[in-house]
Design a protein around this nucleic acid. Sequence first.
DNA 1: TCTTTTTGATTGATCCGTCAGTCAATCATT
DNA 2: AATGATTGACTGACGGATCAATCAAAAAGA
Lengths: 226, 226
Amino acid sequence: MARTGMEPVRRRALIGAAIEAIHAEGYCGVTVAEIARRAGVSYGLAHHYFGSKEQLLAAAMRHLFRLLGEEVVTRLRQAETAEARLSALVRGNFARSQLQPSLISAWLAFYMQVPASPAAAHLWRIYQRRLGSNLRSVLLQLGLEREAAQDLAQLIAVLIDGQWLHYALSGEHPGAEAAASTVERSIWMLIENRTGQARAVPDQEWQPAADQGRPRGHRVVGRGGG
Amino acid sequence: MARTGMEPVRRRALIGAAIEAIHAEGYCGVTVAEIARRAGVSYGLAHHYFGSKEQLLAAAMRHLFRLLGEEVVTRLRQAETAEARLSALVRGNFARSQLQPSLISAWLAFYMQVPASPAAAHLWRIYQRRLGSNLRSVLLQLGLEREAAQDLAQLIAVLIDGQWLHYALSGEHPGAEAAASTVERSIWMLIENRTGQARAVPDQEWQPAADQGRPRGHRVVGRGGG
DNA sequence: TCTTTTTGATTGATCCGTCAGTCAATCATT
DNA sequence: AATGATTGACTGACGGATCAATCAAAAAGA
């Protein structure tokens, strides 16, 4: 073992182990000893680097946000049109990397903390503001008026989080793509209702699930335009 | 004190105390002693009636579902048209009685349990099935085709739970009516998109919140009908 | 009516295990 | 030797569960 520079390695390992421990033992059942065991270090080291169980878990929560943020930013950077950016915002939340069972358990635990923990509430507010701001920006680019963009951004955030919750609780793990495309289709429908013009939904880069009975394309509403 | 017939009284008191304790101490911080104290009984009695902490908390979770179910059923019974029944399904979830902070904390705690606890997962499935079945039934009455009703029911459930989650986590407690009407407006928009006919949104029986800037009425989309 | 018995309701001390946090010692590299 | 990394025994506190004992209302019997 290298004598120096171990700290970031250990911190990462402990944070990852904390998330897995939350999944395996339940948030209430998590112990520092279990986390340390999973990280392959001793009990004392966890305290050495994080000071307390609370701080370790808080770091794990912050890690969740960083992961999601990086996922979304990466996708946003690859998107060249407003439509693609909107898709990136939705699909970033349903990326496979974000839907691993252990991450889902940790997110659920985080949600539960929000009403009681100011730190968790703060993170939640940041997450909401960031998503809302991104959505508003894209919707403005798509031609919505300011107030409509504000309202619709709020609604889209609700859709995303609602669909995420259903995915998390229903345990239908093959359904991630379907979840994302359901949200996307609804969003385009709502946008068309507000702009009065039909749009081409950007192609999805993923392959449709094998058993997906619904036509992949959007069901264009039969209105002639505004 | 009456010698007999105390059991249901105590059980109710302990369940109510458990929900309040979850809110006050956090789900992980709840102790049987604290619950008993809040219920005004001794520590031992809680074990006498429920056998274990786990069973007590499970009973509290089941109580949440009964409360919500009764709220919805009451509203459904008072509704005479399909439109009113749809409104009842939405607004039952946003009734003031269901949005007390202690209930919200308990629901969040319940959600967190779902992936790990088979009992919680079972309750969640029942809740989902009941809501989905009710929604499908109403949507069929509104003229949607079977498959469209199925899809839209799923989407409405997502909207409801997403909006509930945002309400629960944002702590904007005056916004309950706004939350419900946002969901309702979106639903009617989606229905119109699928049926191709504009509908009169049923009047709301509640009074608009004082500070509610948005027009109370539905924003009817400007389409002439099918 | 008065006494005795029964039985459910209720208590709280106690046991046992667990866990968070501390700390002094050890290890390994420079 | 010096220094950061690491260990794990130890402690104090706490919580869940158990259980023997107490209480009081009701039922049975005299």
